[in-house]
Computed example of a mutant assay.
Amino acid sequence: MPHPEPPQDETDLGASAPLPAVHYAEQALLGALLLQPHRLESVSTLTSEHFGDPAHSALFAAMHTVPPPVAEVHRMEPVWLNAVLATARREAAALNASYLHMLVDACPWPQHAAAYARMIRAGHARRTLRMHAQRLAQATTDTTGPDPAAATLTETDTLTGFLDDLAGQFPPHPGSLPRTPLPPPLPRDRGEPVLSEERLLLAAATARPHEVTTMRWLQADDFALPLHGALFASLTTLAHRGDPVDPVTVLWEAQHRGLLATGLTPADLMALVSAPAGSPEYWGERVLRRALLAHAHLAALRIQAFTDDPANSPHQLITGSRRALAELTAVRARWQRALAPPAPPPRPPSPRAPAAARAGPPHVAGLPVSSAQRVTR
């Protein structure tokens, strides 16, 4: 998240909007390094990209660009400070000498520079995680690309990889579950195109129930309209039992499941499953694709909620984000099964060659084997 340019004096700082706690950690670290440049070695894992304030990032980069000063000279002359300021102003023109003095005053203890650096890395992790979550949410609603599902899964992989990297940077600790209230699921799109495709799936499944038995990758919760999901569950129950499937038998099964209590009349239900068009697999993939995008969007919103809560530590962000992605991972596995090519039919077993005759003593016609053995002696 970008922050305003550094204020010209303390009064400007008080007049601006409240800044996050990491902003003051950035100020404290920069003040420590301005006072004691040799401490740059203790924060070698930090880069200018970790800073949220662009002016702070420019200052930190300038400290690595300008050769370090001699300690005795630095205590007597501001030569290094002036060079750092001049270099940083190429990227942040609002910087001035008074702000550098304010940074020095903002540092409680230069010896705590490493602790300030850890806070800055944590702040950068929070901002970057939120950025990945926002990109994931955007991918789920972007209809300009050729394949929104593929783009969504690509962003999911990027976010998951970032979480894995964070897990190696921030060790776990007790009480790592975030307590942030989760946003509720967004209402599913129930426009006429969506509901029409679900109705076509139900009719096609009724006409071709043998294909439904191979569609274990589709579940009732994937439907935008719960009634359609319940009807699909009725269909699959009949198909897996090997019972006859037609509009009448579907009506009977739906009645036992209490679906007629929703206000749906028997005639309406039979009409709903009596006009097949296309294959069940085709319409089922479209239903599952929308469910995949809906789960990804919800996971992105939940991760953003975690990053918006400043009480969450980096490890809490990692744990909460992984849990938010768990349901998406399950739907993704079903999506991959739906797209997998059908398994080739099993090959018939090759005919076995006749067993070779077992070697033994010669057989004399008319005599048993034991006698033939005696004759050969």
Rank of each mutant, 00 (worst) to 15 (best):
221 D>I: 12
218 L>G: 08
269 L>T: 06
126 R>E: 00
142 D>G: 04
254 A>K: 05
355 A>W: 03
305 A>E: 04
47 T>C: 06
134 Q>F: 12
67 P>R: 07
22 V>W: 02
123 G>V: 01
364 V>M: 09
73 V>K: 11
298 L>Y: 10
207 A>D: 04
130 R>N: 13
27 Q>A: 13
58 A>Q: 03
81 L>T: 14
252 W>P: 00
131 M>A: 15
59 L>M: 10
222 D>H: 14
145 G>W: 04
145 G>F: 04
228 H>I: 04
144 T>F: 06
139 A>E: 00
180 T>W: 02
52 G>F: 03
99 Y>N: 02
226 P>A: 04
189 D>P: 10
257 R>W: 00
213 T>W: 10
352 R>S: 15
83 A>P: 06
255 Q>C: 00
106 A>W: 03
314 P>W: 00
292 L>C: 08
81 L>N: 09
321 S>R: 05
165 D>L: 11
283 W>L: 04
273 V>D: 02
88 A>D: 06
209 P>V: 01
377 R>P: 02
143 T>V: 11
131 M>K: 13
144 T>Y: 06
153 L>S: 08
155 E>N: 11
126 R>C: 04
335 W>D: 00
16 S>E: 13
257 R>M: 05
337 R>S: 12
36 Q>A: 12
224 A>G: 13
93 A>L: 11
141 T>S: 15
117 A>H: 07
136 L>H: 09
191 G>I: 09
209 P>T: 03
294 A>W: 04
198 E>P: 09
203 A>G: 10
192 E>I: 11
305 A>V: 07
253 E>A: 13
217 W>V: 07
318 I>A: 05
330 A>F: 09
223 F>Q: 07
108 P>H: 08
233 A>Y: 00
293 L>G: 07
16 S>K: 03
273 V>P: 05
318 I>V: 15
35 L>P: 00
272 L>Q: 10
233 A>E: 13
60 F>D: 01
264 L>V: 15
286 R>W: 05
231 L>N: 02
201 L>E: 01
276 P>C: 02
120 I>G: 03
377 R>W: 07
118 R>D: 13
52 G>T: 06
332 R>L: 05
268 D>A: 15
274 S>H: 10
225 L>Q: 13
25 A>K: 09
116 Y>F: 14
235 L>W: 01
341 P>H: 06
71 A>K: 14
215 M>R: 01
142 D>R: 04
192 E>R: 11
258 G>C: 08
311 A>G: 12
349 P>A: 08
57 S>Y: 03
372 A>L: 00
165 D>N: 03
262 T>R: 13
336 Q>S: 11
213 T>G: 09
272 L>R: 12
278 G>A: 02
266 P>M: 01
118 R>A: 14
